[in-house]
Design a protein around this nucleic acid. Structure first.
Length: 470
RNA sequence: GAGGUUGUAGCUCAGUUGGUUAGAGCGCUAGAUUGUGGUUCUAGAGGUCGAGGGUUCGAAACCCUUCAUCCUCCCCA
């Protein structure tokens, strides 16, 4: 009966080393967000269920973690509880059973916040948010039930300059993380809408996008099969095929899409958006496109008309960031423009655009590619050996002086054999040790040893300073 | 929600058609070595074989149930 302790499925503990790696990513993203003028925001772990339901599509609703109400067994609530349970058994939601839920992403809570505070905010409001979110998904590679998102959103501005900035944020972050070879795929919902219209009906848009989004995975023939299953006729499918065969550099793709969908009003709008964003992003060009490996020299920003993205509130430009093609991992970031997100909460006409970084997946990718810098592994810089009562008292004084200079130090917790203290330093990846024993006490000195090189020198305690430990 | 994989020491894993006391490497502890680590050598500790039930003279192995895990689909970060 004495079960081993455990944690819920899809959640993880993070040990010291992993936390350091994650903080390295968090800090990189945060500093870039700040660099671009975004301000921090935090919202509660839980939201009212009502706030979240219906915002992420049918599938999304199923993946929301719901929180059971308290006091269900209270005699005065029992009747309601039973009725609520019946409703849930029918597949409906019941406030009598659950009225709160863990947040599913950061965008909807942000929209809720903006709707509640739009009177006080200065627009355009640029906020970033770094917090965990929860999804009741089945865990697998790169998929967790609790994971962090890092979002940056701009609300209250229709300018495409925002999209251009967000593209550059992606580029800056991934470049700083050493993730060259990442891809930032971009499309516009308006293009997808135009395709649907051209194929005879806006109501077909979801069917079409779900199918063509899979092109990468299942190939053209299977996509056509799926389109047939979803009720598209041969003529429509042949149009979609033309659409899917669009190929070449971003410029070439734009020309081809113009020929195909440029005659439609919404298509024209989408093309203009993409032209603006692609044309103004000014990214460096030392990246390769995994779908066209022969064309080295493309920008990491890649036009991809098959990109759909599930979240149904997007209306304009959409983004999806992927790691280098060599790493098998889903998207490591995504985002897009939404014209009227706060409208869902009764405050219309506040357009917005935002992006998100998936830290947990980025961490997995950096791990796989060995891209963490050497110094993320270093915590303590200097270990003072404990050579006895008097000796350690002297060491403690010296250590405190060093700490005042910002050097991260510790004193071994008890007097022990040097062998043991050396091994402790080694395991904690501490680069330097300082030995203050009886000889050193007499001379008022300490022995400073660099464990990486093995060299050591005797230094007057008064001369101990941070420059010795670099 | 559907399908599959694996579960043996702290970690990574062996374990033959079911057969005595379940093994290895790494790690851990101690010693060689009482002021100089990483190397080497020696010794030692450490297991309800995921849990429960069944088949059998006998189960880590075969069957059932259950839990956990990882992976695939759906969808996504």
């Amino acid at each position: 009966m004495s079960n081993k302790p455990s944690i819920p499925q899809g959640t993880r503990d993070f040990g010291p080393e992993v936390v350091r790696k994650r903080q390295y990513i968090f800090n990189t993203i945060r500093s870039v967000f700040e660099l671009y003028g975004f301000q921090p925001l935090e919202t509660p772990a839980m939201e009212n269920l009502e706030t979240l339901m219906g915002k992420y599509g049918e599938e999304g609703d199923k993946l929301i973690f719901k929180i059971l109400n308290n006091g269900l067994n209270d005699p005065k609530n029992q009747e309601k509880s039973r009725a609520g349970f019946e409703k849930v058994m029918e597949g409906k939601n019941s406030k009598d059973l659950t009225e709160r839920a863990l947040k599913y992403d950061l965008t909807i809570p942000f929209a809720r916040y903006v709707a509640m505070n739009h009177g006080q905010l200065t627009f355009p409001f640029k906020r970033y948010q770094i917090q965990p979110v929860w999804r009741a998904d089945r865990p697998q590679r790169g998929r967790y039930r609790e994971f962090y998102q890092c979002d940056a959103d701009v609300v209250g501005s229709k300018s495409l300059l925002n999209e251009v900035e967000l593209v550059n944020i992606y580029n800056e972050v991934f470049t700083q993380l050493g993730l060259s070879g990442y891809e930032l795929r971009i499309n516009s919902r308006k293009i997808l809408a135009a395709l649907a219209e051209f194929c005879g009906g806006a109501e077909k848009m979801i069917d079409i996008t779900i199918a063509i989004d899979k092109l990468d995975k299942i190939g053209l023939d299977k996509v056509k099969e799926e389109l047939t299953q979803r009720g598209l006729n041969d003529e429509q499918i042949s149009t979609i095929e033309k659409y899917l065969l669009i190929n070449g550099s971003n410029e070439e793709k734009l020309n081809q899409i113009e020929q195909l969908l440029g005659h439609l009003e919404i298509g024209k709008l989408g093309i203009e958006e993409l032209k603006y964003v692609v044309g103004n992003s000014q990214l460096t060009t030392d990246h390769a496109d995994s779908r066209q490996p022969d064309k080295v020299g493309n920008s990491p920003l890649i036009l991809d008309f098959t990109l759909a993205r599930g979240l149904n509130y997007y209306t304009g430009i959409i983004f999806e960031a992927k790691g280098p093609a060599t790493v098998k991992m889903g998207s490591i970031g995504g985002g897009g423009r939404y014209d009227d997100l706060t409208g869902l909460f009764g405050v219309p006409n506040i357009p917005g655009v935002g992006i998100s970084f998936g830290v947990d997946r980025i961490c997995d990718v950096l791990e796989e590619l060995n891209l963490f810098p050497e110094d993320v592994y270093t915590g303590t810089q200097v270990l003072f050996f404990n050579m006895g009562a008097q000796e350690s008292a002297r060491a403690f004084n010296a250590m405190q002086l060093l700490r005042k200079q910002g050097v991260r130090c510790e004193l071994y917790h008890e007097s022990a054999k040097m062998d043991k203290q050396f091994k402790y330093a080694e395991k904690k990846n501490i680069g330097f040790i300082v030995i203050i024993g009886s000889t050193e006490i007499q001379n008022n000195t300490g022995v400073v040893k660099n464990l990486k090189t093995g060299t050591q020198q005797t230094v007057a305690l008064a001369d101990l300073n941070n420059k010795l430990f670099i």
